[in-house]
């Protein structure tokens, strides 16, 4: 066997293994680096499709917020008001008055867990008014999650600093 041929054989075997197991020439062989792909890929796709906003408008609220809005309007708005300001038509008869849920400070002070506890267990158990009933049995954990997601959209924007 000639020397060059032997070298060729070794090269072939070596090259094969190198190509198979080492990260080399990725951009040369496959175009862009996979790490270049935006992690928000599905959102990006959506944006391309809907540049025509008037035709297929994006709802203001996401799925969970929409579900929460329906529940809020059905169960909560009677006392807390349509926009959560504590001015529902039944608020008139209540003492203490229902909480203003749009209050920015209140919203920042309460974690989702805090809210879930009062919504699910009622005001009485949390040391608040017993006029706030427990909704845990009617709504369950998931739906209370929707309501909280919607409540967060009711928060006033940050108060302007002087």
């Amino acid at each position: 066997m000639r020397k060059t041929t032997r070298i060729l054989v070794y090269l072939a075997v070596g090259f094969g293994f190198v190509l198979a197991w080492l990260p080399a020439g990725r951009s040369l062989l496959f175009g862009s680096d996979p790490t270049d792909i935006d992690m928000n890929d599905s959102l990006q796709t959506e944006d391309i499709i809907t540049d025509d906003a008037w035709r297929t408008p994006i709802p203001d609220l996401g799925y969970r917020e929409r579900e929460g809005r329906a529940l809020f309007r059905h169960y909560c708005a009677l006392c807390h008001g349509q926009s959560g300001e504590g001015d529902g038509f039944n608020a008139y008869n209540l003492d203490p008055k229902p909480r203003d849920l749009s209050d920015h400070e209140f919203q920042t002070a309460q974690t989702d867990e805090d809210l879930a506890e009062v919504i699910g267990g009622g005001g009485g158990d949390a040391g608040l008014s017993n006029a706030m009933p427990p909704w845990g049995k009617v709504l369950g954990e998931r739906k209370i999650g929707y309501v909280i997601a919607y409540l967060r959209t009711l928060a006033d924007s940050l108060p302007e600093t002087d």
Partner: peptide, 8 residues
Amino acid sequence: AAMSFVFL
């Protein structure tokens, strides 16, 4: 050798 190379 050449075929081995192509094959690999």
